[in-house]
Write a protein that binds this DNA or RNA. Structure first.
Length: 114
DNA sequence: TAATTGACCCTTT
DNA sequence: CAAAGGGCCAATT
């Protein structure tokens, strides 16, 4: 397996910046991580994310604001629960536009230390 | 090397 | 808003 891929750690760091109660899309994370056009890689990276990093994978969803898992899957159920615990409400398997993460670019660049 | 596979995205209907 | 089609790109087979 391709562990220790610098792209992966970059993605994890970016996801770690999402504040509780907010969500971002795969494509958005890819862009912010400096990897435009690689939304699919973000999903893969989250799957490989080491548990000790406590990456908030559940705050990442599709660009249409729906969950990326089958509605009846165990993972989707857990994701819904985690989000609701943070105050992110779902209506029709969609989060509200108001809960989308809109990071301050300057602050983000500082945090990620380019 | 070519084909297949995704925790995806965008545009058009 | 939902569904369909085409695109994308790294990892696997």
């Amino acid at each position: 397996m391709t562990a220790a891929n610098p792209h992966y750690t970059r993605i994890w760091e970016t996801v770690l910046q999402i504040p509780a109660g907010k969500v971002a899309s795969y494509g958005q994370i890819a862009d912010l991580a400096g990897l435009p056009g690689r939304a699919r890689l973000v999903g893969k990276a989250l799957g490989y994310a080491p548990k000790e990093l406590a990456v908030p994978w559940y705050r990442v969803l599709r660009s249409d604001r729906s969950l990326a898992f089958p509605a009846d899957s165990e993972t989707a159920l857990r994701q819904r629960e985690l989000l609701q615990d943070e105050g992110v409400l779902l209506t029709n398997n969609r989060v509200r536009k108001a809960d989308l993460w809109q990071p301050d670019l300057m602050e983000l660049l500082f945090q990620l230390k380019y």
